[in-house]
Simulated assay, not measured.
Amino acid sequence: MAGRVSRRFVGIVTLLVAAGSWLGGSTVAHAKPAAKPRPTLITLTGTDLAAPRAVRLDADPELFAAVLDQVSWLQGSGHTTAPKAADLGPKYTVVVHVGDAAKQSYDLYPLAKGGPRAFRPAKQPGGRKTSAAWFFGRLTMAETLRAAGAPLPEQASTVHGGVGGGERVIPDETLGSGEDVDRLLGELRRLMLLNGAVLLSITVGLAGIALLVRRRTR
C-alpha cells in the first residue's frame, strides 16, 4: 500500500515539474520581443537633382550607414530656432524606408551659413506626425550627400574654415571683439587683485591672533 502511494506521489510531482517547465518555456518564448525591422532604403531628392537617388543597404552598406547617421539621431525638441531662408542654401530631403514603406523624412541643408542644418518636419510619411524641430547638422553632411549623388562642391576639409577656406562654423557676429577681450582681461586682473588683498588680510589677522594667544600663554 505504501509503495503504491509513493509511486503515485512521484508521478504527480513529475507531472507538476513537467507542466511547470512547459509553462515557463512558453512564458519566456512569448516574452521575447520581436526583432525591430531595420531600415533598408534611403532616398535623396533635391531641386538640383534630376531624379531621386536611392541608397540601399544591400547594395552599398557603408554609404547607407553614413547617410543614415546624418538623420538617425535627430530626436527631441531640437538645438536651434529656424534660420533665415536666405542663409540655408540648397535643400535635400532624405526619406528612410523599411522595406517599401517610407518611415521618416528629414530636410538637410549642408551649405547653410554657419554650418550644416537639419530640419525634422512635423508631417511624416504614412500620416504620422511629430514636432517640427531644427538641429545643427554633422560637419560631414556635405561630403556624405555628395557621395550619395548630390551635386555639391568637393570639400577640402570636413571642418569649415579649415584648410581650403570656407564658411566659419561659428558666425563672425557671435565672436567677441578686441575691446571685449580687453575688458574681460581687466576684470580678471581686478578680481585677482581683490582676491590677493582678501588673502593678505586673512593672513595678517591670523598672525595677530596667534601672537595674542602666544603672549597670554606665557
Score class of each variant (00 low, 15 high):
residue 100 D to R: 09
residue 17 V to W: 00
residue 193 L to P: 07
residue 189 R to V: 12
residue 97 H to K: 10
residue 75 Q to H: 04
residue 65 A to H: 07
residue 6 S to C: 03
residue 195 N to H: 11
residue 34 A to G: 14
residue 150 A to Q: 02
residue 51 A to Q: 15
residue 119 F to C: 01
residue 136 F to S: 01
residue 53 R to W: 01
residue 216 R to I: 08
residue 2 A to D: 10
residue 189 R to K: 15
residue 113 K to F: 02
residue 175 L to Y: 05
residue 92 Y to V: 04
residue 54 A to E: 13
residue 69 D to M: 10
residue 48 D to I: 06
residue 69 D to H: 13
residue 152 L to R: 02
residue 80 T to L: 09
residue 29 A to Q: 10
residue 45 T to L: 08
residue 8 R to A: 13
residue 110 P to D: 03
residue 60 D to L: 05
residue 55 V to T: 09
residue 127 G to V: 07
residue 119 F to L: 10
residue 130 T to K: 09
residue 79 H to T: 15
residue 117 R to T: 06
residue 133 A to S: 06
residue 145 L to C: 14
residue 23 L to T: 10
residue 1 M to F: 02
residue 91 K to S: 15
residue 88 L to K: 03
residue 2 A to F: 02
residue 90 P to A: 11
residue 143 E to H: 12
residue 186 G to L: 13
residue 8 R to Y: 03
residue 26 S to D: 13
residue 144 T to K: 06
residue 188 L to R: 15
residue 134 W to A: 06
residue 9 F to Q: 11
residue 28 V to A: 13
residue 206 L to Q: 12
residue 166 G to D: 08
residue 16 L to D: 01
residue 48 D to K: 11
residue 173 E to F: 14
residue 101 A to D: 07
residue 124 Q to D: 06
residue 160 H to A: 15
residue 186 G to Q: 14
residue 8 R to M: 10
residue 140 T to D: 05
residue 93 T to I: 06
residue 190 R to N: 09
residue 133 A to M: 05
residue 48 D to R: 11
residue 176 G to W: 05
residue 179 E to T: 08
residue 156 A to D: 10
residue 66 A to N: 10
residue 6 S to F: 03
residue 174 T to H: 12
residue 166 G to K: 04
residue 124 Q to L: 07
residue 214 R to C: 13
residue 161 G to A: 14
residue 136 F to K: 07
residue 127 G to E: 08
residue 40 T to A: 01
residue 143 E to W: 00
residue 204 V to W: 03
residue 188 L to E: 15
residue 209 I to L: 15
residue 26 S to H: 13
residue 63 L to N: 06
residue 217 T to F: 01
residue 85 A to R: 09
residue 36 K to N: 11
residue 51 A to W: 05
residue 53 R to V: 06
residue 50 A to D: 15
residue 158 T to C: 04
residue 133 A to G: 05
residue 156 A to C: 02
residue 174 T to P: 00
residue 79 H to Q: 12
residue 175 L to W: 05
residue 82 A to G: 04
residue 218 R to K: 09
residue 168 R to M: 01
residue 15 L to K: 10
residue 85 A to T: 13
residue 124 Q to I: 04
residue 163 V to S: 12
residue 31 A to W: 04
residue 122 A to Q: 03
residue 190 R to M: 11
residue 2 A to N: 04
residue 216 R to H: 12
residue 146 R to K: 15
residue 40 T to S: 13
residue 29 A to W: 04
residue 68 L to P: 00
residue 186 G to V: 02
residue 80 T to E: 08
residue 123 K to T: 09
residue 105 S to C: 10
residue 186 G to I: 06
residue 120 R to I: 01
residue 142 A to R: 05
residue 174 T to V: 09
